[in-house]
């Protein structure tokens, strides 16, 4: 293989494809980091909410709802689901001494149930919605499917939108205030309880949106929730809990490490490398790249 061949066929596509995967991971991690960072709640069932989003897209899509409408409809439908889950499962244990562990356990149980329920409703076989934007485009000799280009663009837009809401709006300020000091925020008139439920639902809704967007690429099956969860947690930790920019940087960085490492060593070892990065961060910089939101 000539160096030019290598650059054109191997290295460059590797970087670009890593970018698309990176965006996918960031999309899944976004909701996780918000729930994690602002509520201090570990949502182990985040992957299952992602799966619910994907299945909702599949079912509604089969019923004739257009893809573009699904992008709005599914996240909206996920909001009440998230509200109910927060009210029934998170709220009762929110004030226990070890919130991390208790919420982790409760949502772990929820994940088991959701996975099985999805199997009962939709069957065990893998399904896949049709690619909404078919075809591929060649840019500088690198072939990229149109839907992946779209995914990268939409992903960037979603991240910017979420960051705007969290950092620049009054709503975001209220949420951050409630995360930083609940009593203080309450005394300043922030409806803390509603803000918590809303934040959880927002995170869940983002997971659902990721499900809609990624279903055509990664297909849909009952255990799909487990797919991204370790990587997403890693991204959240490396990026810094609750930090949106941290999640973005960490997501892109880790997937690039994974993509490039797989060129040199057997791809099986990319998981340990990614995990090794997480351990290194936990040990040497537990606050992550960007520190923790609301806890600067």
């Amino acid at each position: 293989m000539t160096p030019v061949d290598y650059l054109q066929f191997v290295l460059a596509p590797q970087v670009v494809n890593g970018l698309a995967l990176g965006i996918a991971v960031v999309l899944v991690a976004l909701g996780l980091t918000i729930i994690f960072g602002m509520l201090d709640v570990i949502n182990m069932s985040h992957g299952e909410f992602y799966a619910i989003g994907a299945y909702a897209a599949l079912a509604l899509g089969a019923a004739g709802v257009g893809f573009w409408f699904l992008l709005i409809l599914v996240p909206v439908l996920m909001v009440p689901l998230g509200m109910v889950a927060e009210r029934l499962l998170i709220r009762p244990v929110f004030d226990t001494k070890d919130r991390h562990v208790t919420t982790l356990l409760v949502t772990f149980g929820l994940g088991l149930i959701v996975e099985d329920v999805l199997k009962i409703i939709f069957g065990a076989n893998t399904q896949r919605p049709p690619t909404p934007i078919p075809g591929a485009t060649e840019i500088l000799g690198i072939i990229l499917p149109n839907y992946r280009i779209f995914l990268i663009l939409v992903g960037v837009a979603i991240v910017l939108g979420v960051a705007y809401v969290v950092y620049k709006t009054r709503l975001g300020a209220m949420v951050r205030a409630a995360a930083f000091d609940r009593n203080m925020a309450a005394s300043l008139g922030v409806p803390v309880s509603l803000v918590y439920a809303g934040t959880f639902a927002f995170g869940v809704s983002l997971a659902g949106l990721a499900g809609v967007l990624l279903a055509p690429i990664y297909s849909v099956f009952p255990t799909m929730g487990r797919d991204f969860i370790l990587l997403a947690f890693t991204v959240v930790i490396v990026g810094g809990m609750g930090s949106i920019w941290g999640a973005v940087v960490a997501g892109l960085l880790l997937t690039q490490v994974q993509a490039l490492a797989s060129l040199i060593i057997s791809p099986v070892w990319t998981d340990p490398i990614v995990f090794g990065t997480m351990v290194a961060f936990l040990v040497f910089r537990p606050q992550g790249l960007f520190g923790r939101l609301g806890h600067a």
């Binding site: 244990v93 356990l105 409760v106 772990f108 149980g109 149930i113 099985d116 329920v117």
Partner: peptide
Amino acid sequence: EHHLIVIGLIFMLCVL
């Protein structure tokens, strides 16, 4: 064969 639902439910209720 849907034992996950039952186990998950018992587990969750136990935590709560």
